[in-house]
Amino acid sequence: MKIGFIGYGSMADLLTRQFLAHSDVAASDIIVYARSANDKLQEMHDLFPELTIAATSQEVFEKAAHTFVCVLPLGVLPVLLDAKPALSADKHVISIAAGVSVADLAHVTDQAQFSKLIPSLTTSVGIGTSLVNHGSNVSTENQTWLSDVLGTFSSVMEVPEENIDLASDLTSSSPGFIAAIFEQFVQAAVRKSDLTEAEIFQMISHSLAGTAKLLAERGYTFDSLIKRVATKGGITAEGVELSEAKLPAFFDELLARTEKKYDHHHAEIKKQIDELF
């Protein structure tokens, strides 16, 4: 059984490396098509010469039982249309594009089995969530295969389409949000002290890593951790009180902005569907 990749950017590279490192997938099981040469694919092929580089996307769909489509949102439907003759009923196609639903994919054909995957960078270190959503005709066998192969290096959650955009904010986008927030914490500490930026970064990054371990390994919730650290009337409680006063509006606006961006993606895909079909 071969596993295909159409497009080979950072997420395709992440998935390929994790499959090879943690599952029973062999390099000889993988076939990749990329429209243009890139360093990631060349490095992977140098490491694993038995990996197959296909001449066309249709070749991938023909040879692979499961194919991950890892191209930009507006590129997904054209890729599928170009290879439509190969999209038979036994083919399992998994798109990772934001804003493209399983129902959108089914406009191409009602024969192939379509799933959606939202991966996260955090799964590259063995902790993180992979979001999945399946079309109604995806077999139990294929649903189980995808869950099992992703489950070797991540927590797999099946999420309804109506919730997947918000869930993507919480999994795929949140490392960027968290990094942006704590970069501002670093810069505030730089302005307030004689410590170097490197020293401050080390302190905060280690605190973040330790906090994550407490949550993951010691059974803390955010609320119970706050109660454990923030003594009533103490210094930490001052920061918690300020956070509770200021952050709700920030996160409400953050989710409103990302929702607006998702709406834009959906509108672009709807327009594309109207033009193609």
Rank of each mutant, 00 (worst) to 15 (best):
T16I: 13
V32W: 05
L215D: 10
L20N: 13
I273E: 11
Q111T: 13
F19A: 12
L247F: 04
L51K: 06
Y220F: 05
D82L: 12
E199I: 02
T144V: 06
D110L: 07
E161A: 10
L14C: 13
E158M: 09
K260W: 08
D263G: 00
T221F: 05
V32A: 00
Q184A: 11
L170F: 13
F5M: 11
I127W: 05
G135N: 10
S207C: 14
D263S: 08
I235C: 03
L72C: 11
L87Y: 07
K116C: 11
L80M: 09
I53C: 01
I226D: 12
D13Y: 01
P248T: 09
P85T: 15
A256S: 09
S120E: 13
E59M: 06
E183G: 11
A180M: 10
G234E: 06
S154W: 00
K232S: 01
F19I: 09
G4C: 05
S172I: 01
E141R: 02
A216P: 04
A97F: 09
E59G: 09
D104K: 02
I164N: 09
K63T: 15
L247A: 05
S28V: 12
I178C: 15
K246P: 00
E241Q: 09
M1T: 13
E199V: 08
A26Q: 03
N163E: 14
T140Y: 01
H107R: 01
K192G: 13
E241H: 00
G210H: 06
Y220C: 02
T231D: 13
L131Q: 01
T211I: 06
A179P: 13
T144L: 14
S120F: 02
Q184F: 07
L117I: 07
L254F: 14
T16W: 14
S88Y: 02
L121N: 04
D46R: 06
Q111C: 13
Q143Y: 06
F177R: 01
L47R: 07
D29P: 06
L131G: 00
S172A: 11
A55Y: 14
L87Q: 00
F182R: 10
G75C: 07
L214G: 14
V132A: 03
L117D: 07
I6E: 06
Q184P: 12
S57F: 03
I269E: 03
L195E: 10
F185A: 10
T196E: 06
A189V: 08
E161K: 02
F48T: 10
T122L: 12
L195H: 08
D82Q: 14
A106F: 04
K40Y: 10
L72G: 01
N142K: 04
F177H: 06
T236V: 03
L254E: 05
A34N: 08
T16Y: 05
S193T: 04
I31N: 02
E158P: 08
T236F: 03
V93I: 11
P119F: 10
T56W: 11
V190G: 11
T258Q: 06
E275Y: 00
D13S: 07
D82V: 08
H92D: 15
I226M: 01
L215K: 00
